[in-house]
Design a protein around this nucleic acid. Sequence first.
RNA 1: GGUCUCAUAGCUCAACCGGACAGAGCAACUGCCUUCUAAGCAGUAGGUUGUGGGUUCGAGUCCCGCUGGGAUCACCA
Length: 594
Amino acid sequence: MNLTSLIQQALSEALHSQYNLEIQPAELLLQPTKKEFEGFYTFVTFPLAKNLKQAPAAIAETLGRYVLDHTHEVSGYNVVQGFLNLSIADSAWLDTFRVVQLPDFGQFAPNGQKVMVEYSSPNTNKPIHLGHLRNNFLGYSVAEILKANGYTVLKTNVINNRGVHICKSMLAYQRFGQGQTPESTGTKGDHLVGDFYVKFNDEYKAQVEALQAQGIPDEVAQKEAPLMNDVQQMLLKWEQGDPQTRALWELMNGWVYAGFDATYRKIGVDFDKIYYESDTYLLGKTVIDEGLQRGVFYRRPDGSVWIDLTAEVLDEKLVLRSDGTSVYMTQDLGLADRKYEDFPMQKSIYVVGNEQDYYFEALFHTLQKLTRPYADGLFHLSYGMVDLPSGRMKSREGTVVDADDLIAEMEETAETMTRELGKIDGFSDAEAHTLYHTLAMGALKYFILRVDPKKRMTFNPQESIEFQGNTGPFIQYTHARISAILRKAQQMGLDPTPASIAELTLHPTERELIFVLSQFPTRLAEAGANYSPSLLAQYAYELAKAYNQLYNEISILGEPDAPKRHFRVQLSLASAQTIHRTLKLLGIESPERM
RNA sequence: GGUCUCAUAGCUCAACCGGACAGAGCAACUGCCUUCUAAGCAGUAGGUUGUGGGUUCGAGUCCCGCUGGGAUCACCA
């Protein structure tokens, strides 16, 4: 039993014996004691005052007395108004530490539940940019966190590889591509295709302006521009399976996939299953028929199909166009069924920006009305947009921060700083470059993941490459620092593996560190329940901080007393391992040296 | 206009069912490397939590109003 539940148990008994009050231990909430007070755990007695008809301080005093007398883990208490602060005996801290050292500490047993996490879901026209990075980092981390919480997780990626937008790139390539390839131009495939998408928009804009100059009104000009007609033609050909169109489509998509793969590998995210929209976009039509038959949907005179969600405080939503072609909703209905066939899950998480809150609400309500067995487990992990200090990223204004560029820049910074600090003595070139990449990704991922996913965030390129303070590299540094100590300990013949620990008097920083270490499972569970990597990012920071405080106050290898020295080496090992595990759940690597 | 959402130190972020004097980092200023990695540690300064009410032992947190951002409400994807 861990310390928290032990104390809850004791308090529950105290309430029973002193006040004849029955409260379940788990309902007696403890909070960490504020630093300015003595103690580690605080129990608030205000809520009990009315019930027990006694002053909060008196209740705290009574409970404190009882717990101190009956629980040997509690070594003291003090009362401030209605706050009961409990101090913990060193022997109890050592017991706690023994649990922390166990190999399965913080590893939740399989819970038999399946969860699908869909994330990334790019569009094959656009190389990955900063906004996508938040999606990728979040999705990956949430999936890993859920695994650690005992779920069986399937990571999926739905690639939006068809439609008008793709035809735009294809058309521009046909007209202006001159047979270029990623190889011939030395450009990553996704960037090459993205360039043609931009090219299309430029040419199209020019045509529209030319028409406007002839006095043709805006809307007409936009529709009548020859390029737009050509795109519609091409889309039609694609849908009819025209071999030439399909061949070009496959060629260009192939380049994009290769480019995405390279980026995914670089940022360290992966998927168990990839869905291509070209394979699934027709699936929804049978769902439409089913919905019509069951009266969930209705058809308007023009042939379009709708669902009435006004009772859900939404609106009437179109689910199929009057010409019988799919809208987004149509596809997602079909895909939802397909996902469940492939992986019968209890939960299905869609990692998508909060601009689509309304859409997902409508989608989920629709699936509810269709009484899908998985409908209750659907969850939209809605995250806030990433702003630049100058405001929102706008592709039209060229203010989009490209992921590949950003990472390259951060690697350069990492290299500069590492060299300045003279930290690469004894590194081979390859090792040094691995380190720069590890640090760059650590800085970037931590910078993005430490913010509550639900909140909109500002990405300041200057601050994201800071390596000091509350940053990824600070935590990585702590890991490297501990690794150095462990290497030295090994040379000295000190065995860091868990062994019997003598009864010791602990230093305050040791107690604090054990306390933080012991919190790992709780924090992991919270992060899982809230789908929030930021909780773990914060935890990693607290842990690194606690270790560094200890490091500065007491000597580890220089400790003359052998049992103490041995204990501190073990404490160091447990700290390094827990930092490593926490960072791993965030998708961040822990270097041995830096 | 309807709906949703956000507003905390100069900047970027915290604050677990409502709990103690609202915490970190950056930036500014002070100290600490002949001892395990100073990408570190310790400290100073910085706040009427946008604003006005309400609920209660207690409100950054819950409710209502106001102000100011953002998103969304397509037979676009």
